[in-house]
Structure formats: C-alpha cells, structure tokens
Design a protein around this nucleic acid. Sequence first.
DNA 1: CGCGACGTTGATTTGCCTCAACGATTGTGG
DNA 2: CCACAATCGTTGAGGCAAATCAACGTCGCG
Lengths: 197, 197
Amino acid sequence: MNYLMAETISAALSQLVDFNEEELSYFMKLLKVKKLKQHAFLLQAGEVCRMMVIINYGGLRYFKIGEKGEQSHWFAFEGDWLGDYESFLTRSPSPYYIQALEDTEIYCLYYDDMQHLYEKGVNFERFGRLMAERLFVAVGRARMDLVSLSAEQRYLKLMADFPNISKRIQVQHIATYLGIHPQSLSRIRKNIARAKE
Amino acid sequence: MNYLMAETISAALSQLVDFNEEELSYFMKLLKVKKLKQHAFLLQAGEVCRMMVIINYGGLRYFKIGEKGEQSHWFAFEGDWLGDYESFLTRSPSPYYIQALEDTEIYCLYYDDMQHLYEKGVNFERFGRLMAERLFVAVGRARMDLVSLSAEQRYLKLMADFPNISKRIQVQHIATYLGIHPQSLSRIRKNIARAKE
DNA sequence: CGCGACGTTGATTTGCCTCAACGATTGTGG
DNA sequence: CCACAATCGTTGAGGCAAATCAACGTCGCG
C-alpha cells in the first residue's frame, strides 16, 4: 500500500486512538483500496453492505428511495467513514443507496477483517467504540435539529457547519437531507440572499 | 448490592457481551443505585452529565427547552441506558434535562468508573462499542423517519414499535418527540380513531 | 447541436401551527 | 373531605410555511 496516497487515512485512524506503528500498519493492510467514478454506486438497496469505507478523496452520499422520492441521510468526504452500519452488522439487506458525488477513492474494511481487528487488541475495540460514540452524538444532534429548528434555520446551520458543502453537493440533495423539497430550499435561499442586501 | 433487585440490570448487561461472573460482578459493583420520585430531575440544563444510568424500574424523559418550548428527544425504560452522552464524554455543560416520568430506580455509572472499566479488559470496551453502535443505528432510524414520514405515519410507527408507550408517556411529550405540537397530535389521534370505525 | 438534468419561479393547495377556549382529571391547601 | 387551582387532552377558527403541480432558462454532456 502506498502510504503517501493514504495520508488522509492514517491521520483519520490515529485521530481517535494512539495506535503504535505495528497496529497502524496492521490496520492499513486490511484496508482494500477502491476507486469510484462520479455517480457510481457503492451500495444499492437490497444488497447487504459488506464493508465500511473511509474516504481518501472525493465524496459519497447515503440515501434512500421512499414514497417521497430520494431522501438523503448522510454525506461523507475525506477522512470520513461511511457504510450502512445496520446492514453491515446484521448482515441483512440494506434499504439504502451509497453513490459517489465525485470521482472518489475509498479504503474498504470488510466485515470479517473488522472482526479480526476487534480480536487483535483492545485498541481496535476502543477505536470502534469511539467512532460509534461520535457518530451517535452527531446523528442525535441532527435529529434534534429537525424537530427544533425551522427549515431556514437548519439550512443556515448546515452552511455554517460546512461552508463549502454547497459546492460539492447538489441543492436537491441538501434539500432532502434537510427534510424539505428542492423548490422550498430554492425559495429559502432566495429569501436569505434578499435579506443580505 | 442486591442481585435480586438488579436482575433487569444484569440481564441488560449480559445481553450485549457474554461477561464471565467476575466481570459481571465487577461491573455491578461500580453501579450506584439511586431512586427518583416522579418528576424529579436527574439532569438539568447547564449541568455536566456526570453519569450514564441504566433503569431497573420506571422511566425517564430526555428533553431540551428551546424556542418552541420543550422538545422531547428520547425516552428510556427498564433495562435502557440514558444520559447526555456528549456532555458526559466531553465533560461540558449539557443543554438537556432528564426527568423521571414515574417513580424510578436507576443504577449510575460515573465517568471515572466507566474509564476504569474500559481499562479493565477488552470485554468492557466491546460492551461500550456495541452499546454505542446500537444507539447510533436507533437514532439514525429516528432521524430518517422524521424526514421521510408524515406526522401520522411517525405516530403510527411509534405506536407499532412501542404499543404501551402511550400509557407511560404523556401525549404532549410524544408529540414533541414526533416533532409536532400536542394539538396536532390530538387531531391525528382523532383521525385514526375515526378511520378505525 | 440537441437532449436531459438542474435550479429556479409562479400559482395553488395542504398539513401543521397559532391562538383561544372547553371539559375532565389531578393535585393541593383550607 | 371538599373546594379550588393547575394540568391535561381536546376542539374550533384562522394563518402560515412548505408541498404540489407546472413551466422556464441554463448548463453540461453525448
């Protein structure tokens, strides 16, 4: 594996747990590189999610198709992990899609390899725990925002938290993430632009 | 500690990880029992959440007070864990309240004790990981329901998942959990009752 | 170039909110 | 123990934010 190419990855891994060199190298060896062209699918509804992936460069969108059409649920960029955790853990079919927003390079951790990792030492268990804890806190906040903020407040908050997100994610996908329709978000953006004058 | 009284607890602990007797006993010894009268607060906004608790009997409501008034975020009953995980982990003031829905007995795990637990062995790390994973999946589903389902669908799903919830949680609290106002939920309930005839 | 996808805008409808008031129940103090 | 107040769930009337249906200009791509 080319460590230069994977600097983003090793930095992301070391951020949560202070792995020693041997541990880090063992971890990295299990990660299988994969390239996705823009719009390519990493996961489609009905499939079992067989891997969790971490992004070296590019971006992924995690979404579902329901009665209201596509509903974006999460986005991931450089250094972020993504996968359908529930499908991955329970090895049951996922109702979600994962699609590349741009040309993307990911490093894949397959189920069996992850289990080996957990057997390999407490640091890997700790890594898994810390990651799950952080995800839980983040998605909990996102849930709270949905019930306690207006659509415009949610949009402004998203823009404040991720200023460059609108350059990498289509407006329609941001809208469904916020729980509103693209037309409504368009009007909200117009109002904000008008208010700024 | 009275193990008879804490059957709910040891069952809940053993559900995630197959602890041996020594581990289980060590875990239980760290849990400090506490009783809460109905309406008593376990946590108030501005305080740091110093413990995660597991419920032996009774129920707790986790909520926030914002511009729209009280917003319920989660509920916990027998065998469930609760606490403001973010405040607990970061040791920073919480914006949340935790209040007893009924007379409730909890077992408290304080921050330092939890850290000791994590140092004590891989099974405890694994326990923490599995718990965080499950919470992440549950709150992720809850977030998705908010954006993809109508208020009525969310209510019906909640009732299907927890049929007895309405006997233990006030309608107004269910409403704010669903992201709607109590009056709206009242109308939704009327519609459902009318449709059933 | 021509097609399709995207973001936008307009007109209308709808689901939920807001403000207000009502009985029923719970709880409390005289 | 009863009278009163507070809380709760409900209902009504009206308003507003967002959804829906429809159309348009722009851009990227085959």
